[in-house]
């Protein structure tokens, strides 16, 4: 995974895991890789990996079971909410990029629909 060194690493790894949870790569109730495994996998500091899991737990997307590890939540509604959030961010990013190019809002939405039709 390519990291942006100017944004906190834990944030980026967490988002990657979130995407994994949303897309079903880490299905609800499944066990997430251990902290150290995650650290090795992403080439990051174990500290950072630990932080990622802490934050995931804060959001409610995962829960730690003593001695067993971290497991993805079964809360389908929560997962759906997070998907909404991330999707929303993607849309915002797209709109921001278009705005920077001087494309007006309505024109931007038009472009989106047209391109969607083509595909």
């Amino acid at each position: 995974m390519q990291f942006d060194p100017m944004i906190p690493i834990w944030l980026q790894v967490m988002e990657d895991l979130e995407v994994g949870i949303i897309t079903g790569k880490h299905p609800p109730g499944s066990k997430l890789p251990g902290g150290r495994e995650t650290a090795v996998q992403y080439g990051i500091n174990p500290n950072t990996a630990a932080r990622v899991y802490q934050e995931l737990e804060k959001l409610g997307l995962s829960e730690t079971r003593r001695g067993l590890g971290s497991f993805v939540t079964e809360d389908g509604a929560l997962i759906a909410r997070v998907r909404e959030q991330l999707a929303g961010k993607a849309v915002d990013r797209c709109m921001r990029d278009l705005a920077r190019l001087g494309v007006e809002r309505s024109a931007a939405i038009q472009m989106l629909l047209e391109r969607e039709e083509k595909n």
Partner: peptide
């Protein structure tokens, strides 16, 4: 290096490859 790291350990790296270490060090 990541495998050797731990809560009770300290790893100190000196390197010129600053960009390569971005994700590794905290």
């Amino acid at each position: 290096i990541v495998e050797r790291a731990g809560e009770d350990r300290l790893l100190l790296l000196s390197s010129h490859l600053v960009e390569e270490m971005e994700t590794l060090v905290d």
